[in-house]
Design a protein around this nucleic acid. Structure first.
Lengths: 189, 189
DNA sequence: ATTTTTAAGTGACAAATGTCCTTTCACCAG
DNA sequence: CTGGTGAAAGGACATTTGTCACTTAAAAAT
């Protein structure tokens, strides 16, 4: 029988008993959203973080000239939120939108803290996840500084082959920090 | 009377009693290094993290074509180490060198964990520091993707006016992800 | 003080990438 | 099926940035 995707994800860090997982899961609520709808708008207070069961989203910021920078994508089994706003209870500076119809599990700030306190393995899972996020961010910055547009693009395709055919090129471009046209030119060859 | 720089730094997060600070400080050892010497070489195991009392350092990686990317600078009251190697006990992929004669306070992995366990405020200080590091990294990535060389340079000068006249331009360039010549051109105007 | 070494500034040119505009293609609603 | 809408491709040209070669200035060593 199929294990729950969230359980699988947590257990990639540490195993849980059935009771523990059921208890954890009981703190989440399900959210469904249509394609193109917003999960978070700039200026919102962000009370939850989300685990993606189905669909695909992106978080992004818009600069004063209207240009967008995609900060993160999230598809099945990824977490997404506006970290700074969620952690510090300040208005979001990053928006999150659905690129497809989505089904998410939402966990509130309070319940997150509660689970962390009550279930040591969950706390550990969060710490590991946070550290991996930091390292990934480092790698992305390094590639951004040392790599050409081509290298960054190839790295993206290699790292996320499933996203590459699922997400509009415009957004991939804004994630990589290049124009959409440059992406086109790259795989012409 | 003058407070210790490390104490000042920790107390920007939470106040300590004299006893607490003395106890914390007793776990550090002093390290002195000459200009141009290496604190960490690629491949080293990294047993300590360092608080800068005097001098200036940089951490950097070198790519296969010999080009360098400066990952971080650290001057007085900054921490520096090779985070991933230090945390995971793996060989360093980033080197650290002194740009000036340096005087550092070194804290071992074990003592760091010990202090975290014994002094709740120290643990908290580490958590806050880590989170600030994450947010700073986000900002840097965003500027890297959205900003021109000029914007990145101006941001650097504005953010670190003291470093700008203290560090060779070559290194500032490798921190910003541009060539040294581009830096020259920028402040010609 | 003099030499030697290292960092920085400069100009000319090449390469990468951005911008703008037009065309093509795929998909969806009616 | 059809018209419309949005995404992607492609070409032409502008701009930014990199590269290389050389000069100048500053700093370190003797």
């Amino acid at each position: 029988m199929m294990s729950h995707p969230l359980r699988t994800h947590i257990e990639s860090v540490s195993k849980l008993t059935d009771e523990e997982f059921d208890y954890i899961l009981s703190h989440f609520t399900t959210v469904k959203l249509k394609k193109h709808s917003s999960l978070v708008r700039e200026g919102d207070l962000v009370k939850h973080e989300y685990f993606v069961l189905k669909g695909c989203l992106r978080s992004y910021v818009t600069d004063n000239t209207g240009k967008e920078f995609t900060y993160q994508f999230a598809a099945e089994t990824w977490w997404i939120s506006e970290r700074e706003a969620f952690m510090k209870h300040i208005p979001a500076s990053t928006a999150i939108e659905c690129l497809e119809d989505c089904q998410l599990l939402a966990l509130s700030y309070e319940d997150r803290a509660k689970l962390g306190r009550e279930i040591w393995k969950y706390e550990h899972y969060l710490a590991v996840k946070s550290n991996m996020g930091y390292v990934a961010l480092q790698k992305r910055l390094q590639l951004m500084i040392m790599g050409s547009a081509k290298e960054r693009f190839e790295n993206f395709v290699h790292q996320y082959p499933h996203l590459y055919n699922r997400i509009p090129k415009t957004h991939i471009a804004s994630y990589l920090g290049v124009s959409r046209e440059t992406i086109s030119r790259l795989y012409r060859k």
